[in-house]
Design a binder for these strands. Structure first.
Length: 191
DNA sequence: CAGTGGATCGTCT
DNA sequence: GACGATCCACTGG
């Protein structure tokens, strides 16, 4: 599942919602490791209507509302019964820039899908789109063969999961180094 | 810049 | 009745 989170970097996520097309390349992800992960909504085997899509087959979406404002988009990654998911945190816009700019009311053409809340908004994704196939008419996850070179891929603790105790420190976040569309602070150029 | 607090509501206790 | 897998505006230095 960590591997899937890493492999999702460079993949293309596109939507045709309300008949309008938008697409971007994934540059930041976070893995949520199911029932043993305090940061996961499925921690302890919690199983509610909201979380149910995570218990479904991989290759579908799990979308939920956060802070009453933001819709966060996840990729469900395992077989039925195992609630693993990967939060898609940021995209580099590829197509439909103007549409995404309208949706997010952003002045910027870049960085309008930087952060999970903005990403869902830019793509038009809402909780109405939870538990959908990622090869369906509304949402598609594509591989065009592009890969970020290994030295550009970085890993670190997840964001906004302070409530998760020790699990808040797990290095389950993957991102492209020095990429302008990655959320959070910039890391120094060196290493 | 960094730090802070408000927005806003579905979901679960 | 409390609380977010967030974002942005606003403050002060």
């Amino acid at each position: 599942m960590l591997q899937i989170a890493e492999e999702l970097l460079g993949k293309i996520l596109c939507t045709r919602i309300d008949g309008e097309y938008a697409a971007g390349r994934i540059v930041e992800t976070e893995a949520y490791a199911g029932i043993t992960d305090r940061a996961s909504h499925a921690f302890g085997g919690r199983r509610t209507a909201r979380v149910e899509p995570m218990y479904g087959p991989g290759g579908r979406s799990y979308v939920y509302l956060c802070y009453g404002i933001h819709h966060l988009f996840n990729v469900v990654t395992n077989e039925p019964g195992i609630p693993h998911a990967v939060l898609i945190r940021a995209l580099e816009p590829i197509d439909g820039h103007l549409l995404m700019q309208e949706r997010t009311r952003s002045k910027q053409l870049r960085t309008l899908a930087r952060g999970p809340g903005k990403l869902a908004r830019a793509l038009g994704i809402t909780t109405a789109h939870t538990s959908l196939s990622l090869q369906g008419p509304l949402i598609q996850l594509l591989d065009d063969g592009f890969r970020y070179p290994a030295e550009l891929v970085a890993r670190g603790p997840r964001i906004g999961v302070d409530y998760a105790g020790d699990d808040a420190f797990l290095p389950y976040r993957f991102y492209v180094r020095q990429h302008p569309d990655v959320s959070g602070k910039k890391e120094p150029a060196s290493r």
